[in-house]
Design a protein around this nucleic acid. Structure first.
Lengths: 147, 147
DNA sequence: CGTATGTCAGCTGTACTGACATGT
DNA sequence: CACATGTCAGTACAGCTGACATAC
């Protein structure tokens, strides 16, 4: 081998690096996420709901970029944990509005105070502001081309 | 809410964006990976073996950053597909050396010719060279702080 | 009726831990 | 013996599709 794909192809090289880093980051983010016994998906949805409650499952699914069937099970777990609840939409009988319970709101606020998130800590301690800007710029690019 | 976490904390903001983009990219990379009926993990291991065969399961696990138990099942799938095989290490009876079969090698070479990888295509068509450089720089930073 | 919303069941892929066997 | 290597079993998480009910 060796010829494989021309290593000078910038797009291919970049793609490989992105794949490798995404894979590694994913494992790290998962393994170091002890944010109060919630799974990463659950934490993410909870944080969304803190910003904007009264949302439907389908809307949450669209925001997170997954199917509504997948979002149902995440919401179910949060309901069982007593952190969110569903209430019927008065104007549309098909809809169920999801919102934080009092306990859910407390959970979010406690988490936000106490959490020393692994990635944020690393970004703060091991990076310059310029490096963080580079990362944000790259995220914007990747977000654009992956939507 | 709205006040939530001080939005001026560059590390936290960057961390959130990285999380969001990693999640989305992961889903996209998975759903658009039809590289010949292999799962992403399998493809990745196969590509490694094309560069360097005669490797143990534990070494593969270390390279990919997973436990050896997890790597065992990936290798099992490739063995069952007839793409790799195990052979005893003559010098150490505990070890099993994993290498591509003829069919496995053919598979890799066919794949490398035919594959128009989703991410590489996007990076080529929707990005400038400067943007790709930004992405690569960011990957280097994230790789550094996640190791 | 078709469409949107939601739920449940079942499947796959990934990676984990624990238990165990075997060889150095 | 401790340690390295490897396998298997069980579990958890995340996402998918398909089937179905209900409401617009």
């Amino acid at each position: 081998m060796g010829t494989t794909t021309s290593p000078s192809d910038s797009a291919v090289v970049t793609s490989r690096e992105v794949r490798a880093v995404v894979g590694r980051l994913r494992r790290r983010l998962r393994s170091s996420s002890r944010e109060g016994d919630l799974t990463p998906s659950e934490s993410s949805v909870l944080a969304r709901l803190a910003d904007k409650g009264g949302v439907t499952v389908s809307e949450l699914a669209a925001i997170e970029g997954v199917r509504h069937q997948s979002m149902t099970s995440v919401v179910n777990a949060l309901v069982e944990a007593g952190l969110v609840d569903r209430s019927p939409d008065p104007g549309d009988g098909r809809r169920q509005l999801v919102a934080l319970t009092t306990g859910g709101r407390q959970h979010v606020e406690r988490g936000r105070e106490a959490r020393t998130e692994w990635l944020a800590t690393r970004l703060r301690r091991a990076c310059t502001e310029q490096e963080r800007e580079t990362v944000r710029a790259a995220m914007a690019i990747l977000d654009r081309i992956s939507s």
